[in-house]
Design a protein around this nucleic acid. Structure first.
Lengths: 344, 344
DNA sequence: TTGAAAGCGCTAACAC
DNA sequence: GTGTTAGCGCTTTCAA
C-alpha cells in the first residue's frame, strides 16, 4: 500500500502554478526572482500540507552533488575511529552534509571497492584512514579534482591532503619513559599489515629511541583480527621459551586491551613483572586495573582539521585542490601500568 | 581541473551503439535480451577502459532505490551502538547495501529532522533506536509502506517491527543479585529523557524486584550529556547529606563508567562501600578496577534480527509490512564490583 | 539483435 | 511575476 511520494509537480498542479515557481519558492530564491509574497505563502502552505520532501536523486542528478561525504576507516567499532566518526558527523551536519561510514578491516581490496562504491553513490568528498600500500589511488582522486582528505595514516609521495599525529615523537616519549622506569627488555606488539604508516612510524620511533639506550626491542606483527587470541598465543610461546619481555609497547588500543586481558589471565603482574604502554588513549584506560599509560591523540583536532580541509575543497571547486600534510602533537599520559611499585 | 564523469552515453558513442544496449549489457541482462557475445565483450571492454562508474542518482531516480539504509542512534561513539553499527554495516554490505549513520543525542526534534532528511536522501529503509515519546512517527512510516525496524527501544501501540532485549528481567536479576550480596540501600542512576523505553523498563524491573525485598530504591535522572560531571555533582551532594547508597544500578555503560570514575576520585571503596552493577556490558568492564558486574546484551543477535527483518521488507515490497516485537534474552555477568571482599 | 524514446523529479536559463 | 523548456544519466518497453 505504498503511497506515491509527492513531487513538485503535485504541488504545482494542485495550486495551478508552474513547477518552476514552486521550485524557486522552496529553494528560497523567491526574492531575487521577485515572486509575490502571496504566491509564496500559498506554495509554502501546500508543501507543508502535502508534507513534501524533495527527491534527493533528482536534485543530485541535476546539481551533481549529494551533500553526503564518505568516511572509511579500518573498524568503526574501535573507540578511536568511532569518536572521530561522531565528531565529523556533527561538523558535517552543521554544514548540511551527512556521513556514510564504512569499515575495511585493513583489507586493501575491500577499501578500493568501497571507494569505488561510494563514488558511484556520488559522495561529494571522502575522509579516509587508508590501509593501502601506496598513495596512487589518492593521487589519482586528487588529479581528478575529487575532494579527499587522509587521516591518521599518510604515504610518501602523497599529493592529497592529510592529517596525522606525531607518531614517531609519541613512540619515542613512550620508549624514553620505559627506560627511565628501569625497563630493559621491551617487546613491540604491532599489527599487520606492517606497511601501514602509523604502525611503521610508531615502531621506528620506539626502536630508534631504545637504540639510543643500547636496547634492541623485539617487534612482533599480529594479524588484525582476533587480537586477544593472537596475543595469548604469543605470550604463551614467550613464556614457554622463557623469553617474556619486561615491558610491552602496544601499537593501538585494541592490542593494549588484549594484552591486559592476557596478562591478567596468566597472572603476570603489571607493571612490576611486565609494564605496558599503549599508543592511543581511550577513556577507559584511566580506570582499568592497572590504569594504562598511553599516548593520547588529539581526536577532536584530527576531526576538525580534516573536516575543515575537506570543506574548503567542497566549497571552492574552481581552484586546484591543495594537498599538504598536517602534523598534530600527541601527549604521553603516565598511569599505573608503567610505574613499578616499591614493595612488590 | 575536473574531468567529466563517463556516462553510458560516452561508451555508446565511442562504440557506435545505442545507450540502451550498453545499459543492458552492463546490467547483465544481455542473455534474456539475446545480445551477441561479441558486442557484449566490446561493451564490457570499453566500460573497463573508460573506468565507467554508474551514476547512482540517475539510477536511483529511475529505480526509486538507493541501496542505502539509515541507522539512527543516540550516540554512535557509545560502544553499544558502535558495535551494532559495525554488525549491521557488515550484514548490509553482503546484500549490496550501505549504511548512513546518525546520532541524535536523545534530541527528539533532531531525530525527526534526521528521519526526514534521510528519507529525502531516499534511503530504502531505516533501523532506529528512537528517543521519541510515542510511536506515531513510526506507525506513520509503516502505514506509508516504508521499511523501518526499531531496535533497543519500543513503544506501546507500536505497529512497526521492533527488536528489544528483556530489560525488565535483566534489571530484576541485577536487583536480586545485589540483595543476595547483602546490599540494602540501592540508588538507580538513570538518564533523561525518562520516558525512554529502556530507561523505564530497567528502572521498573529493578524497583519492582527490590520492593519484593521491602526495599525502595531512590531513582535519579541525569541529563544525557556530560555524564561524569553530572554523576560527580550528585555523589558530592549525597556525601554532603550523608545519603550515600551502598550500591548503584547504572542504567547504561556510560553512566557506569562515569560512576567508576567518580567513586575512584572520591576514594569510595567499590564494592565494599558502594557496589556497582551496570545494564549493558562492554568488553572493557571485565578488566577494569574493579571489574564491573553487568547485564550483557546480545549485540550480535540484535543486529542480525533487525537487519533480517528489514531485509525482508526491502525484498518483498508487494506484501503488507508485518510488524511485531522480538524480545531477546540478556545475561547477568557477575564480576568484582558487587562481590564484597571478606577482609576489608 | 539492436535502437528509439519516454520519463523518473528537479533546476536554471530564458521567454512572456 | 510567472511559465516554458531543456536536460542531468539511467532503465525499460516497444518497435524494427
Amino acid at each position: 500500500m505504498k503511497k506515491k511520494r509527492v513531487s513538485l509537480n503535485d504541488i504545482a498542479e494542485s495550486l495551478g502554478v508552474s513547477i518552476a515557481l514552486v521550485s524557486l519558492v522552496l529553494n528560497g530564491k523567491d526574492a531575487e526572482q521577485g515572486i509575490s509574497a502571496e504566491t509564496k505563502q500559498k506554495v509554502l502552505a501546500k508543501a507543508q500540507e502535502l508534507s513534501y520532501k524533495p527527491n534527493h536523486f533528482a536534485r543530485g542528478l541535476r546539481l551533481g552533488k549529494s551533500f553526503t561525504i564518505g568516511l572509511i576507516v579500518s573498524d568503526i567499532a574501535n573507540g578511536f575511529y568511532s569518536r572521530i566518526a561522531r565528531n565529523i558527523e556533527d561538523l558535517a551536519e552543521v554544514h548540511g552534509y551527512n556521513l556514510i561510514t564504512c569499515s575495511t578491516d585493513e583489507d586493501i581490496e575491500r577499501e578500493l571497492r568501497l571507494i569505488k562504491l561510494l563514488r558511484a553513490k556520488q559522495i561529494d568528498g571522502l575522509i579516509i584512514s587508508s590501509s593501502q600500500e601506496n598513495p596512487d589511488e589518492f593521487n589519482r582522486l586528487k588529479a581528478e579534482g575529487f575532494p579527499v582528505v587522509l587521516i591518521d595514516r599518510c604515504f610518501d609521495g602523497l599529493e592529497a591532503s592529510c592529517v596525522v599525529v606525531q607518531n614517531r615523537e609519541g613512540a619515542k616519549q613512550a620508549a624514553a619513559h620505559l627506560v627511565e622506569q628501569g625497563y630493559k627488555n621491551p617487546l613491540v606488539l604491532a599489527i599487520e599489515p606492517a606497511h601501514v604508516f602509523t604502525i611503521r612510524e610508531r615502531c621506528e620511533g620506539f626502536v630508534s629511541e631504545m637504540k639510543k639506550h643500547s636496547i634492541s626491542p623485539k617487534v612482533e606483527f599480529l594479524p588484525f583480527d582476533d587480537a586477544f587470541n593472537e596475543v595469548e598465543r604469543l605470550i604463551d610461546k614467550l613464556i614457554q621459551n622463557n623469553q617474556l619481555p619486561d615491558c610491552i609497547f602496544a601499537i593501538n588500543n585494541n592490542i593494549a586491551t588484549a594484552c591486559l586481558q592476557v596478562l591478567r589471565k596468566y597472572n603476570i603482574d603489571t607493571p612490576n613483572k611486565v609494564g605496558l604502554v599503549c599508543f592511543d588513549d581511550i577513556p577507559y584506560f584511566s580506570f582499568m586495573n592497572p590504569a594504562v599509560t598511553a599516548i593520547s591523540q588529539p581526536v577532536d583536532d584530527i576531526s576538525a582539521s580534516a573536516f575543515e580541509m575537506l570543506l574548503k575543497m567542497l566549497k571552492d571547486e574552481k581552484t586546484e585542490l591543495e594537498g599538504g600534510v598536517k602534523h598534530l602533537p600527541v601527549e604521553l599520559i603516565i598511569r599505573e601500568s608503567t610505574i613499578k611499585k616499591i614493595n612488590i
